[in-house]
Amino acid sequence: MKFTRRRVLTAMAGAAAAIGAPSIWIQTMKVYEGPVSDHFDGTQFFDPDGVPPKSLAELLRWQLGGDRQRAKWPEWAPSPHADTPPPRVDGGKVRLSFVGHASWLVQTSGLNILIDPVWSMRVSPVSFAGPKRHNDPGIAFDALPPIDVVLVSHGHYDHLDLATLSRLSAKFAPRVVTPLGNDLTMRSADAAIKAEAFDWHDRVELGGGIAVTLVPTRHWTARGVLDRNKALWASFVLETPAGKVYVVCDSGYGEGKHFRRVAEKHGPLRLAILPIGAYEPRWFMKDQHMNPADAVKALADCGAQQALAHHHGTFQLTDEAIDAPVTALGEALDEARIPRERFVVLKPGQVVEV
Rank of each mutant, 00 (worst) to 15 (best):
K93C: 00
K93E: 05
K93G: 05
V94N: 03
R95Y: 06
R95H: 07
R95F: 07
R95I: 09
L96E: 02
L96W: 01
L96D: 02
S97Q: 05
S97D: 05
S97A: 09
F98M: 02
F98C: 03
F98P: 01
V99Q: 02
V99L: 15
V99N: 04
V99E: 07
G100N: 06
G100A: 13
G100Q: 03
G100E: 00
G100C: 10
G100P: 04
H101C: 10
H101T: 09
H101R: 08
S103P: 01
S103T: 14
W104V: 03
W104G: 00
W104F: 14
W104R: 11
W104S: 00
L105S: 13
V106H: 06
V106T: 11
Q107R: 09
Q107T: 14
Q107F: 13
Q107L: 14
T108E: 03
S109I: 14
G110A: 12
G110I: 10
L111F: 07
L111S: 08
L111I: 12
L111Y: 07
L111Q: 12
N112F: 15
N112K: 15
N112V: 11
I113P: 12
I113S: 14
L114V: 12
L114R: 12
D116Y: 11
D116M: 09
D116T: 12
P117D: 06
P117R: 13
V118Q: 05
V118E: 00
V118S: 10
V118C: 05
V118H: 06
W119E: 00
W119K: 04
W119F: 09
W119H: 03
S120W: 03
S120P: 08
M121D: 11
M121V: 08
R122G: 07
R122L: 11
V123H: 04
S124Q: 08
S124G: 04
S124D: 10
S124E: 11
S124K: 04
P125T: 06
P125K: 11
P125R: 06
V126I: 14
V126W: 03
V126R: 04
V126Q: 00
S127A: 15
S127R: 07
S127F: 06
F128Q: 10
A129F: 09
A129W: 15
A129C: 11
A129R: 09
G130R: 00
G130P: 00
G130C: 00
G130Q: 02
P131D: 00
P131K: 02
P131M: 08
P131R: 02
K132L: 05
K132E: 13
K132F: 04
K132Y: 10
K132G: 12
K132S: 14
K132I: 04
R133A: 10
R133Y: 02
R133N: 08
H134T: 14
H134Q: 09
H134A: 10
N135W: 02
N135R: 15
N135C: 14
N135V: 02
N135D: 09
